Simulated assay, not measured.
Amino acid sequence: MSSHSTSSLQTTSWGPLSEPVHDDAAGRGDPVWKDNAYLSYWDVERKIFGSFHVSTSPNGDGARRARCSLIVGHDEVEIIETLDRGSFSSESISFGLDGTITVSHPDLEASFTNTPLHTPADFSLHELIPPLVPGKPLQHFQQACNICGDFTVRGSQHHLDGLGMRDRTWGFRDEAAQWAEYAGLVCVFDGAFLTAMKFLGTDGQLGTDGYLIDHEEARHLRDVTFRRTAAAQFLAATLTFDDGSSRRCTMHSREAGFFVPMGAETEGPAFGTYDDFMTLDLDGVPGAGFFEQGIVHRVA
């Protein structure tokens, strides 16, 4: 299966996903404000899978982190470093909101360029994630992308030419306080981008949000149900849209996976999150992406 399976019209800029960091948005007495940027990507042909995740905060000392996780064949690299407030660049990792990401580290040298596909999915419209501060909802956007570049893992040179999803959020946010559990499915198919999320809030309420986006329209999801293995790994999803129609997304092969650090080190509740990269199909149309599951661990 080719890693290039998208033929839709491309946008010319990252729009809301290039929103600058808000370094003066909150003070010591306010709930924690987080500016997050995220990119997961896959090149199925070359067996390359990876994620970048940067999170900074003007008032959350434990909420500033840069992460780069990458698997190529049987080699795996993970770099986790602290970030300064107001910055998406750490000692080794630079996440450019313009679409350029670089890494300069003894284990990994990389220079990647990501370009947008389709239009952004705006998760701010329906407030699936309850506002931590009333009247100030979390701003959240996702968009499919192409990603390409060259990198070196411990002296071994590689080329990346794949697809992915970029995410940008900003606002007051505390995962362990707002969410009990969530699951999210992200895929790029031939001509379409699917992103679906389902959250269980700490108040016991379930909520779904998501979109199937192509070059013609963005179809909003009303509900999604997941089928899992006995070990709770993704097998399939049934997607129900606002007009009552439904689609079926099915896993073909599990390719790679990463744990995702979400919060600060703690002796209290901690949010545990994992990404499973897979090949999938949407009613027979081939694609690839990942399934992310997160749950609050309360036993301390």
Rank of each mutant, 00 (worst) to 15 (best):
Ser8Gln: 08
Thr11Trp: 02
Ser18Arg: 02
Glu19Pro: 00
Pro20Cys: 02
His22Cys: 13
Val32Thr: 13
Tyr38Thr: 01
Tyr38His: 08
Leu39Ala: 08
Val44Glu: 13
Arg46Tyr: 00
Ile48Thr: 15
Phe49Met: 04
Gly50Arg: 03
His53Arg: 09
Val54Arg: 00
Ser57Glu: 02
Gly60Val: 05
Arg64Gly: 02
Arg64Leu: 04
Arg67Lys: 07
Arg67Leu: 15
Arg67Ser: 12
Cys68Ala: 12
Leu70His: 05
Ile71Asn: 04
Val72Ser: 11
Gly73Tyr: 05
Val77Thr: 09
Val77Lys: 01
Ile79Glu: 07
Ile80Tyr: 00
Glu81Cys: 04
Glu91Val: 10
Ser94Arg: 10
Ser94Pro: 04
Leu97His: 02
Gly99Met: 11
Ile101Glu: 00
Pro106Cys: 06
Thr113Phe: 01
Leu117Asp: 02
Asp122Ala: 10
Ser124Arg: 04
His126Pro: 00
Ile129Asp: 12
Val133Leu: 15
Lys136Val: 12
Pro137His: 01
His140Leu: 12
Gln143Thr: 09
Cys148Tyr: 01
Gly149Cys: 00
Asp150Ala: 08
Phe151Trp: 00
Val153Pro: 03
Arg154Pro: 03
Arg154Val: 02
Gln157Gly: 03
Gln157Ile: 09
His158Leu: 01
His159Ala: 04
Gly162Lys: 00
Leu163Ala: 05
Thr169Pro: 10
Asp174Gln: 14
Glu181Pro: 08
Tyr182Thr: 10
Cys187Trp: 00
Val188Ala: 06
Asp190Leu: 04
Asp190Ile: 00
Ala192Thr: 04
Ala192Trp: 00
Leu194Pro: 09
Leu194His: 04
Thr195Asp: 11
Ala196Gly: 14
Met197Thr: 15
Lys198Glu: 15
Leu200His: 14
Leu200Cys: 13
Asp203Phe: 03
Gly204Val: 06
Gln205Lys: 08
Leu206Gln: 15
Tyr211Glu: 13
Leu212Gln: 08
Ile213Ala: 06
Glu217Trp: 01
Ala218Lys: 11
Leu221Lys: 06
Asp223Ile: 06
Val224Lys: 15
Phe226Cys: 14
Phe226Ile: 14
Arg227Phe: 02
Gln233Lys: 13
Gln233Ala: 11
Phe234Glu: 09
Phe234Asn: 06
Leu235Ser: 09
Ala236Lys: 06
Ala237Ser: 15
Thr238His: 11
Phe241Gly: 08
Gly244Tyr: 04
Gly244Asp: 10
Gly244Thr: 07
Arg247Lys: 13
Thr250Ile: 11
Ser253Tyr: 05
Glu255Arg: 15
Ala256Trp: 09
Phe259Tyr: 14
Gly263Cys: 08
Gly263Arg: 01
Thr266Cys: 10
Pro269Gln: 10
Phe271Leu: 13
Asp275Pro: 02
Phe277Glu: 08
Met278Val: 15
Met278Glu: 10
Leu280Arg: 02
Asp281Gly: 08
Asp283Trp: 07
Asp283Pro: 11
Val285Lys: 01
Pro286Gly: 03
Pro286Lys: 03
Pro286Thr: 05
Glu292Val: 07
Gln293Arg: 15
Gly294Thr: 11
Ile295Ser: 14
Ile295Phe: 11
